[in-house]
Amino acid sequence: MSEDIVLKAEDLTKHYGGVHALEGADFEMKKGEHVAIMGDNGAGKSTFVRQITGVEQRTRGKVWLYGEEVNFAGPLDAREAGIETVFQTLALADDLDVPDNLFLGREKTFANWLGPFRILDYKGMRKATLAGLEKTAVKIPNIRNTIQNMSGGQRQCVAIARTATFQSRLTIMDEPTAALGVQETEQVEHIIKTLKENGEPLILVSHNMRQVFDLVDRIVVFRRGRICANLAKADTDPQDVVAYITGAKTGEEYRESAL
């Protein structure tokens, strides 16, 4: 398999008891590509993301990352392999500051022989935090502020900056602007464009049609647990995508499975 394929999934399936949340999803993305995942509520978008990132264990199917088959036992495995995820629920600790959150679960430390009592390298983490924020063009007035004192946009930026601090090989964002105001959304979109310029691959789960058409190269539509369309941005338009989302239309190659 080519090294140019960042992520490939074959027959990815997840059943929760009798509920078929995700059924036979085949997915592929190339280096530097930004792909949007769209679909109605419960269509399987988040389930798909959770299988890729090791948050849940898939029922069936295979996943390759940069040509290498992967089986993540947990989110930390996925992260170590280079998949950074900005979850819908943000996954930030409110009482901690920016560097603490960026490095949560993978702190820079001294005296590692001390086990759980190894000593935190605050200075090193602050430096890396500032570098990561710079790279993503995220502006936060004071990184020593705790998350609870920040606006929704700033929180989202911290969550995104986390992905940039660790040389991620694939970034996944699950509805990064769903809860944000206009100006904050603009800020997050600016960061995504920065990632695009740096050639960093991204999967964007979003409901926002304008945003998707602004930011990504390709759109994959999910419906009732199945992929029903795979559209290059140039070949489609918002009405077309809506038709796929609502079920008025189904992609040629997916017709059989979507019945």
Binding site: P75, R79, F87, T89, A91, L92, A93, D94, G105
Partner: peptide, 12 residues
């Protein structure tokens, strides 16, 4: 204590 879910997702 701050966010158990976040701690778990961070691999703690």
């Amino acid at each position: 204590g701050s966010n158990e879910e976040a701690a778990r997702m961070s691999g703690i």
